[in-house]
């Protein structure tokens, strides 16, 4: 099963949003070969929701939308390619 297919399966599952994010974080970490955190954004606060058990030192922070962001140790994509990540996670973080 490809990464895209596994992510689609996760999206369609009955898991809670947090549960889906935990699986999604693993998929993205495998795909991009780096550790990531999904964070919920409130003002300046980026609160950890799901992601690596390891310490991710925030070299790269990217705000996906008003409410969610990704932190990873290295850049996952150039800004022009960020829609690729958004495509992967659409439906999980869109509300």
């Amino acid at each position: 099963m490809s990464t895209k297919e596994r992510i689609q399966k996760t999206k369609n599952s009955d898991l809670s949003r947090k549960g889906k994010l935990v699986l999604l974080a693993h998929e993205l970490a495998d795909h991009f070969k780096t550790d990531i955190y999904f964070c919920e954004i409130k003002g300046k606060r980026w609160s950890f929701v799901a992601g690596s058990d390891k310490t991710v030192y925030g070299s790269w922070r990217f705000q996906l939308n008003d409410r969610w962001g990704i932190i990873s140790t290295r850049k996952l994509a150039e800004e022009k390619d960020i829609h690729l990540i958004n495509d992967m996670i659409r439906g999980i973080l869109s509300d």
């Binding site: 955190y37 300046k44 606060r45 609160s47 992601g51 932190i71």
Partner: peptide
């Protein structure tokens, strides 16, 4: 103020 802006919270 890094921790709370880098997911190192809670």
């Amino acid at each position: 103020t890094a921790g709370y802006r880098c997911g190192r919270t809670g």
